[in-house]
Design a protein around this nucleic acid. Structure first.
Lengths: 244, 244
DNA sequence: ACATTTTTTGACGAATCGTCACAAATTTAG
DNA sequence: CTAAATTTGTGACGATTCGTCAAAAAATGT
């Protein structure tokens, strides 16, 4: 079955290439300019071939979204090796998520757009399966950290009956903070908060609320935040500051 | 200047009518089916007239979003009269926001879609101004509650230097929770949490983290949640349960 | 009653989506 | 190695959609 696998690999490679081109289009001309015709024109294939990969425009969006989730997963994997107490490990994840949105604003915006039943209905089932599986892998990583923290006695057992509720709280706060800060309408109140530390502050509030020790007043988590940046993401941050 | 004001009123009324029709279209045929042509066809006016109201499709979206914010503001105003301690008052706001997303899923979806620079760039400045002003009014209400709570000694002064950070934390958590729960891809982990109490739980975590007393273990906020439902939104909830 | 200004109209061009009959390439069979 | 069968790729096409604009209709002022 070598020809089978070779063919399949070629198709997969072409799909990655098409996704790269789609991202290029968005970054150069904006989200609205991503059309199937333009993607076709930029590739060396024809419309029919592009439609062989993506059953619809919405399916293409989901493919972009899946790419974003894959990048996030790899960042999370890297972060899991961070040396520190269990609370710092969670902060590292929040840091990673915010950094992702800064490094890949395009993919972030796409994810936001994709989050709607209307899109899921038009995307292919296979694509949606990949999406939810990748997302779940990350949730499982987070859940693992929570279990470890509880075993070590650093996290209160008050919510032990539904660990998923804890993952949800952390996830919702990170997502909400970043999404409002980066995508919302220019609201006066948003100008009054410190964008650099807002995610750290909000994460700290949640972790304090979960009675996850050491509390924010017992430990210098600002130092942790900076250590995460320096030890885990020196490259990404250098690249980011160079860009702006 | 009676003719002037009469004319202006007629225009405003027609605009509200057009927005009603747009919502009808979305609810009957889905978001993607809302086109300027269809809106024109459903109205008794012509395309040019519709474009006199909404400079572009994006501007129409923002108008829908503004309608949603106006409804939220009126719900918030009603909630501000809720009798209870200062923490319960904040819970009432969270309750109101969740109820809004349940009562008006269409407008909620629109708000999510609108949150992107690409849309704001194509919308008219006047429309955006209305949006950010309405949003700010609600933030100010929230801020007022925070100040009262601090004065009464129910809320720790630890974050008193940037009250907006507190409003942001509460807002981000409510928004994040509701958005992920209602719009996200069907993730396995989401099926494991109790959708009815997730917003209350998450809000409680944040308020505990802010050291907002009485703490969640000192007071029965589930009872408050039900009281808010019964005293403030009996009508809306009855209507809602009847629908499903 | 007539001129001027404002509002409304709908046909139009450009651009987009997704399809499908056909062409090219690849695989299989003899 | 050749021919049939199957898979893969092509791009013209119909159906929609967006936003514009010259011309018509209505409203206003004199």
């Amino acid at each position: 079955m070598t020809t089978q696998t070779r063919k399949a690999r070629e198709v997969a490679e072409r799909e990655e290439l098409l996704i790269d081109l789609a991202i290029e289009i968005i970054e150069q001309h904006g989200f609205a300019q991503l059309t199937m015709d333009k993607l076709t024109a930029r590739s060396e294939y024809s419309k029919g071939t592009v439609y062989n990969h993506f059953s619809s425009k919405e399916d293409l969006w989901c493919a972009l979204c899946a790419r974003g989730l894959r990048i996030q997963r790899s960042m999370f994997g890297k972060l899991a090796q961070f040396q520190g107490n269990s609370r710092e490990a969670i902060l590292a994840l929040s840091f990673g998520y915010e950094l992702f949105t800064l490094c890949y604003p395009t993919l972030t915006m796409v994810s936001l757009r994709v989050m709607s039943p209307a899109v899921f209905e038009k995307a292919s089932p296979a694509r949606i399966k990949v999406l939810s599986e990748t997302e779940d892998e990350m949730v499982q990583m987070l859940k693992g950290m929570i279990e470890v923290a509880m075993d070590k006695g650093e996290l209160s057992r008050r919510y032990q009956d539904n660990l998923y509720q804890i993952t949800f709280a952390i996830w919702a706060m990170s997502f909400g903070s970043v999404t409002i800060m980066r995508n919302s309408t220019p609201a006066p109140c948003l100008e009054r908060i410190d964008h650099d530390s807002a995610v750290l502050t909000n994460a700290s509030i949640v972790l304090d609320g979960l009675q996850w020790q050491p509390y924010s007043w017992e430990f210098d988590y600002h130092a942790s935040w900076q250590r995460i940046a320096k030890e885990m993401f020196a490259d990404e941050l250098a690249q980011l500051s160079q860009r702006s």
